[in-house]
Nucleic acid binder design. Sequence first.
DNA 1: AAACTGACTTCTC
DNA 2: GGAGAAGCCAGTT
Length: 107
Amino acid sequence: MNSSKGFKEKIYDITKKIPKGKVATYGQLAALAGSPGAARAVGMAMKTNPIPEIVPCYKVVASDGSLTGYSAGEGIATKKEKLLKDGVTFKNNKVDLTISQWSGFNQ
DNA sequence: AAACTGACTTCTC
DNA sequence: GGAGAAGCCAGTT
């Protein structure tokens, strides 16, 4: 059951399900996790992310498409490179959510 | 148990 | 359009 897992577990699970070439916002992940508005909690879950290798936290961007945080690699720079490598469309150093934002599980 | 923190979001100046 | 402040949620100390 979804509720059986901790909030962070849900966030990690959802983040791992983000398709290649797509990104999701913190608020979107929070909503999918069952707690809309918990965008900050999502960010903390990413920061405490135990395994960035299996949790593509770089696919998680701000509501504006701006890249924030990222504790691994060179930080934002690495995050941006990973997104470009995944085929995410950028616009002015930000992710073009109009094209690359994940539609959710109902894609 | 209470208080502080933080990879957010939105409003206002 | 950029900078600052307030609000919200979950986790950590």
